[in-house]
Amino acid sequence: MIANYGYKDGSGDYFIAIDTDRCDGCGACVPMCPSSVFMVMDEDPNDPMREEPVAVVADDQRKKIKYACAQCKPGGDRPPLPCVAACPVDAITHSW
């Protein structure tokens, strides 16, 4: 499943997508993120019949994701995002 967390507002689309078919809940993304955007759940909240751990975007971050990620996204040349770089299976993508 592709789980898109975030929102769209007048200034653009701000979504972090997690591919839950790739993510195995290893947790590598969690400590790398300076804004504590990710959390690993024991099972996928959107797929209750599957009992595998998976990463989600924390509830309290979803409404402010544009601001939470601003520190990793300077204008001009963008360094690799720590979360994306940390994920061994390329499960994380950002829409902006």
């Binding site: 499943m1 592709i2 789980a3 898109n4 967390y5 929102y7 507002d9 959107n46 979803r62």
Partner: peptide, 12 residues
Amino acid sequence: GKVTNFLMNDKC
């Protein structure tokens, strides 16, 4: 009926 992709507008 299993979810394959979803998007929720969390803000507005």
